[in-house]
Write a protein that binds this DNA or RNA. Structure first.
Lengths: 277, 277
DNA sequence: TATACTAATGACTATTCGGTCATTTGTCAA
DNA sequence: TTGACAAATGACCGAATAGTCATTAGTATA
């Protein structure tokens, strides 16, 4: 398990330096100080490695931002905190960002294409949720345009982190973008992005989480989870997936228990999605 | 010369389907219906091909947009026309966009990295020029932020063209984004991007056009340019580069003559940059 | 028709890659 | 010390790649 992490770390360095295709398994194993065979004990193929990496890093990104948005911060600082969490993530993981937000070669691998689009859709939903909390009915038609603008701000300003090491004032950046978002939300009158359009672009990937795949995910995370309140919570939730009896508040509480463990935030996120919480 | 274009066209198709690294020279020649040897008569290496392609497509993109911005359109429609030209380009060249705006593998090739950053800097300058024309002194500190927002809008909304074939109303889109830009420009009070920051990010590539390299570029374009007013104009400009005597209006007129030929817009653009016109 | 020249071919080479597997090394309990 | 098991190795394989070059096809001139 530690070996896997080592490989993923060193591979990330190399991918961000040279790109995925241009990096050989040999190079990865050399940088890790292990043999080629050892690599294939951890990952069945080179593709499985990149898929694992995408999952790992995008899951963290999505859950980090979701955490902020779902928190009960007061309305006047939530936008600032939202941007702060995003650019903090870019700052801490500039290498990942270089690889996963730019290397669209990944998109030619069908399996990954679906996944990346799905994570993007998750992010869109999170943003829309935030906008609904912030502005309720004030935004009717322009909701999706504001969302596109926010994503545009992210893409444009993230370059500062990805292509240079200039030290930046995250607070100031977050405040500046929060103001811009506020302005766009308050003044836009000509919408372009419709709900239908959003549906169309996300077409193949708005599939619900299936019960089996969720159970499998939970099962997977129960291994190597020592006896604790958190483990018990996850076990209870597993039964609830098969046969729901608890009320929403109880379910939410159990999910929050799990969310406390950083490595388990993703399961928490998916379960919450499953129960519509 | 025709062969080169055929190769670039077919290569673009393949790159946009599979990515650069994953496409072999064999595949390209097969789709062109030529032999492998014939490929190497047109391009010395596979890298030279991708570099030529980047030059070709990004040059057109930059000059197209610059054309609109420098035109004497009235202020109230220039923003709309600006966005229209950009998304028209995305629509017409969705394949190029897929390759050159997304495949950042290209950035790992040092030579290309410089070039792409340089084209990006050109685009930034064009946008800043437009903003200065539109708002003069009204934007002091927020000029560069507005520019970043515009680039963000481009990045975010271009996805609609790159990842789907949904028919879209370009006029409506341009109007919507022009409004957003207007709103941001009028209301932003908290700047983040400073002139210094822009300098830093574009550091290695704000080198002036050198006289020699410009002469070389002109020489290159004089070949295969039949006798005509345009050719004479270019020859006159060549002498002017070596020994400037004409006044700005005359220079500008000569440059405009050349700009009429679509294939020569790039030379025109570079000469104009050289003379600060 | 003969000659001279260019354009085009595709078999070939040297190299590199992802992935395998017989073998070795390390680590326990007995 | 022994033996049994798992972890790790790296030589090796087939496939694929970028790039070369002796040869051929095509064309224009005399």
């Amino acid at each position: 398990m530690l070996k896997k992490q080592l490989i993923m770390e060193k591979a990330l360095e190399l991918f961000s330096e040279q790109g995925f295709e241009a990096t050989s398994v040999q190079q990865i194993t050399e940088r890790c100080g292990i043999s080629k065979g050892a690599f294939y004990l951890s990952f069945k193929t080179k593709d499985e490695l990149i898929i694992s990496m995408v999952e790992h890093y995008l899951q963290r990104f999505v859950t980090d931002v979701d955490q902020v948005v779902r928190s009960s911060l007061s309305k006047d600082i939530i936008l600032v905190e939202f941007y702060k969490s995003i650019f903090q993530a870019f700052k801490n993981n500039a290498a990942s960002a270089r690889v996963f937000f730019n290397e669209k070669v990944l998109l030619t691998k069908k399996e990954l294409f679906q996944k990346i689009i799905a994570y993007d859709a998750d992010m869109s939903k999170t943003i829309i949720y935030m906008l609904e909390q912030l502005y309720q009915d004030e935004l009717h038609e322009t909701k999706y345009d504001v969302m596109y603008c926010i994503k545009g701000f992210m893409k444009s300003y993230s370059e500062l982190f990805i292509f240079s090491d200039i030290p930046l004032d995250l607070d100031q950046l977050a405040k500046s973008l929060a103001e811009k978002t506020e302005i766009i939300a308050r003044h836009t009158t000509i919408p372009f992005i419709t709900e239908e359009l959003v549906q169309l672009t996300a077409e193949p990937c708005n599939e619900e989480v299936s019960q089996e795949s969720l159970l499998e995910l939970i099962e997977q995370h129960l291994d190597g989870f020592e006896e604790s309140i958190e483990r018990e919570s996850l076990e209870l939730l597993k039964f609830q997936v098969e046969n729901p009896t608890y009320s929403k508040p109880i379910l939410k509480g159990l999910i929050e228990n799990i969310r406390l463990q950083p490595d388990y935030r993703w399961v928490a996120y998916v379960i919450a999605k499953y129960f519509n919480i």
